[in-house]
Computed example of a mutant assay.
Amino acid sequence: MKNLKKRRRIQVILIAFVALAISTGLIGYAMQDGINFFRSPSQVADEPPRPSEVFRIGGLVEEGTLVRGEGETVRFNVTDGGASIPVTFKGVLPDLFEENQGMIGTGSYVNGVFEASEILAKHDETYMPKEVVDALKEQGVYQEPDAGS
């Protein structure tokens, strides 16, 4: 009788362990598409990611590079002061998107061009995403916004 109880207890523990391992694996697999790492233009230039990797890039829209193509295609460069990465985007840009302003794009780096699937721009005159501010400070080109504006 004791052996039967002991065997059942071991079986229950093993089944619980296997179920936990399977559920952890499934959660990790489901989240792999939802996790987008942030990279600055300098990081992308130093270590280009695989073309299949989806990530976020942020910085300032480089002055003089914004070219609106035919239809909804837009081309521009994003910079952090240390490197400049060409970006293409097909779609409608946010209203506040303009040159010398902060932006974050989500997409992939293919053949030396960041192909954005989503572009986010600052939402007021003083806001800039923390990741972009950190990348600009690291390159020494960040300027504090005027407090009186």
Rank of each mutant, 00 (worst) to 15 (best):
residue 66 L to P: 10
residue 90 K to N: 09
residue 90 K to P: 02
residue 69 G to N: 07
residue 63 E to N: 12
residue 19 A to P: 00
residue 96 L to E: 11
residue 13 I to V: 13
residue 118 E to H: 13
residue 18 V to T: 10
residue 17 F to Y: 07
residue 48 P to I: 12
residue 38 F to Y: 15
residue 65 T to R: 02
residue 12 V to R: 15
residue 102 G to L: 04
residue 59 G to H: 00
residue 96 L to V: 05
residue 89 F to T: 03
residue 58 G to F: 02
residue 101 Q to S: 13
residue 106 T to M: 11
residue 120 L to Y: 08
residue 58 G to D: 00
residue 90 K to S: 08
residue 113 V to H: 05
residue 11 Q to W: 13
residue 42 S to D: 06
residue 62 E to F: 11
residue 58 G to W: 00
residue 51 P to N: 02
residue 9 R to M: 13
residue 24 T to F: 06
residue 92 V to H: 05
residue 101 Q to A: 13
residue 57 I to K: 04
residue 11 Q to C: 14
residue 98 E to I: 02
residue 28 G to V: 12
residue 19 A to T: 08
residue 111 N to W: 01
residue 12 V to I: 13
residue 87 V to R: 06
residue 42 S to W: 00
residue 54 V to T: 14
residue 26 L to N: 05
residue 19 A to D: 03
residue 57 I to M: 03
residue 113 V to D: 05
residue 52 S to H: 10
residue 40 S to W: 01
residue 16 A to K: 10
residue 94 P to N: 05
residue 92 V to G: 01
residue 21 A to R: 09
residue 118 E to M: 15
residue 106 T to N: 11
residue 44 V to T: 15
residue 26 L to H: 01
residue 11 Q to P: 06
residue 13 I to E: 05
residue 46 D to Y: 06
residue 97 F to P: 10
residue 26 L to C: 04
residue 69 G to W: 06
residue 104 I to W: 03
residue 87 V to K: 08
residue 71 G to F: 07
residue 40 S to Y: 02
residue 71 G to Q: 06
residue 41 P to H: 09
residue 89 F to C: 06
residue 15 I to Y: 11
residue 110 V to R: 09
residue 45 A to V: 02
residue 19 A to C: 09
residue 54 V to M: 14
residue 13 I to K: 14
residue 16 A to N: 12
residue 55 F to Y: 08
residue 112 G to R: 11
residue 26 L to E: 07
residue 110 V to G: 05
residue 28 G to N: 15
residue 38 F to H: 11
residue 63 E to V: 07
residue 63 E to W: 09
residue 118 E to Q: 11
residue 26 L to S: 06
residue 36 N to R: 15
residue 53 E to R: 12
residue 45 A to K: 01
residue 19 A to I: 09
residue 60 L to S: 01
residue 11 Q to R: 14
residue 45 A to E: 08
residue 41 P to D: 12
residue 98 E to C: 04
residue 54 V to N: 15
residue 46 D to C: 07
residue 91 G to I: 03
residue 120 L to M: 12
residue 39 R to S: 05
residue 104 I to T: 15
residue 121 A to H: 11
residue 49 P to L: 14
residue 66 L to W: 04
residue 29 Y to F: 14
residue 78 V to E: 03
residue 107 G to S: 03
residue 25 G to I: 01
residue 115 E to M: 13
residue 67 V to I: 15
residue 22 I to Y: 08
residue 30 A to I: 00
residue 26 L to R: 00
residue 122 K to E: 13
residue 41 P to M: 08
residue 93 L to R: 00
residue 35 I to K: 11
residue 46 D to M: 13
residue 22 I to L: 11
residue 77 N to K: 13
residue 29 Y to P: 01
residue 82 G to K: 00
residue 108 S to R: 12
residue 59 G to S: 07
residue 108 S to K: 13
residue 36 N to V: 14
residue 53 E to P: 03
residue 59 G to D: 04
residue 67 V to G: 02
residue 114 F to C: 05
residue 83 A to C: 09
residue 36 N to M: 08
residue 70 E to S: 07
residue 82 G to T: 00
residue 54 V to D: 09
residue 52 S to Q: 14
residue 121 A to D: 03
residue 51 P to Q: 01
residue 23 S to A: 12
residue 91 G to S: 10
residue 107 G to K: 02
residue 41 P to A: 11
residue 90 K to V: 09
residue 100 N to Y: 05
residue 117 S to G: 15
residue 41 P to K: 08
residue 63 E to T: 13
residue 93 L to I: 10
residue 89 F to L: 04
residue 99 E to H: 09
residue 113 V to A: 12
residue 58 G to L: 02
residue 70 E to R: 11
residue 42 S to P: 09
residue 52 S to P: 01
residue 119 I to V: 14
residue 19 A to S: 08
